[in-house]
Design a protein around this nucleic acid. Structure first.
Lengths: 167, 167
DNA sequence: TATAACATGTAAGTCGTTACATGATTTC
DNA sequence: GAAATCATGTAACGACTTACATGTTATA
C-alpha cells in the first residue's frame, strides 16, 4: 500500500491532520498523486497503531476538533527505507489509445484527440503558474520543482503527439 | 468497466478466445493496456449473456478445446457508442514523483531517476522495432501506428526529464 | 443567518491482481 | 518423456472510490 508512504511523506514535511493530507493531495500533489478520505483515515489509524505516527496534543489556541499527526522516529525510518526502494511500475492504462487501436471510423476518436490537446494546453499554463509560485515561495526545493517539470515535459509530449496524430 | 470494451474492441479486429485476448493484451496492447484472466473470463461470460458477443462453433480442424467468441451486431453497436464517448481521465499516480516530493536526501531517489532513464531508453528501442514491423505488416493501420507514436513521445519526454533532473 | 469550508469517520461496492486448480497439446 | 505453451476458469484478497452520516467554525 503506497497510501501509507504518501501519508508518511506528507507528515515528514510538517505535522498534519487527515483533512490536511487530503487537501495537500488535491493541491500540491494533484498532478501526480491523489488520496481519498476512505483511504486516509483508516491508514492513519493503522499507522498510529504500528507506532509510525503519533497524535500531537491539541494546541490550546486550536479550538477546532482536529487530530494532528506527526512522524515518529520509527516512521521516519520506514519512510527512508521506502525512498531507497525502486518504485514499482504500475500497469499503465490509456483508454484513448485503446479507442484509437480499436476504431475503424477515425473521426469519432480524433475528436477526443483534439479535446486532449486542449486539456493539456490548459494544464501546461497551470504548471507554469505553479512553477512560478514555487520559484518565489520555495526556491530551495529543487525536487518539488522537478515534479512540476515532469508534468511540463509530459504535457508538451502529449500535445506534440496530438498535433502529429491530427496531421 | 472498460474491460468490457477492451474485449469488444479486440473481437472487432477478429474473433478470439479468452486466451487470445490475454495474449493480445500482453503483446500488441501491452504499452497501453492490460487485462488478466480474472477479468477476461467472467467478462466474456457476462458479454455473452447480454448478447454482445457470441460463441462460434468449433471448427473441425481445431482439436483444441478453445472457445472462440465473435461480436454480435449489438456488440458492434455498443462498441461504436463507446468510441463516441470521451475517455474518462483516470487519476494518474506516479510513485517516483511522490518519492521525489517527499525526499530530503536526494541521492537515493536520483538513483531511481537513472534507472528510469535506462528503462525508457530500452523501451524506445522496443517501440522502434514495433513501428518498423507495423510499417511492414499493417501499413494501412494509421491509428495503430499512432498508439506506438504515443509511446515514443512519452518515453522521449521522460528521458529528457531525467536528464534535466540529473543536471 | 446562510453557506462554504473545516473536520472525522464508515459502509458498500467496484475494480483488478494473484494464486490456485485442472487438463490438453505441441515441441525439443 | 519432459517442458513449454495452450486453454479455461475460480477464489481470495487488496486497493480505491463514492456516498453517507455527523457535527463545527469562519465568513459574507
Amino acid at each position: 500500500m503506497t497510501t501509507r508512504y504518501a501519508i508518511l511523506g506528507l507528515l515528514s514535511i510538517e505535522p498534519m491532520s487527515g483533512y490536511d493530507i487530503r487537501k495537500a493531495s488535491t493541491d500540491a500533489l494533484s498532478h501526480f498523486w491523489h488520496e481519498s478520505y476512505g483511504q486516509i483515515y483508516p491508514a492513519l489509524a493503522a499507522l498510529e497503531g504500528e507506532g509510525l505516527v503519533r497524535l500531537l496534543p491539541a494546541a490550546e489556541s486550536d479550538t477546532r476538533s482536529r487530530k494532528v499527526y506527526a512522524l515518529t522516529a520509527k516512521g521516519r525510518r520506514a519512510l527512508a527505507a521506502w525512498h531507497k526502494k525502486a518504485p514499482v511500475e504500475r500497469p499503465f492504462r490509456n483508454e484513448l489509445l485503446l479507442k484509437l487501436f480499436t476504431a475503424d471510423e477515425p473521426s469519432d476518436v480524433l475528436a477526443h484527440v483534439k479535446l486532449l490537446r486542449k486539456q493539456e494546453t490548459a494544464r501546461l499554463e497551470e504548471y507554469a503558474r505553479i512553477e512560478a509560485r514555487l520559484a518565489r515561495e520555495a526556491p530551495a526545493r529543487k525536487l518539488w520543482k522537478a515534479t512540476v517539470r515532469y508534468g511540463i515535459h509530459r504535457s508538451r509530449a502529449i500535445i506534440a503527439w496530438c498535433e502529429e496524430t491530427l496531421k
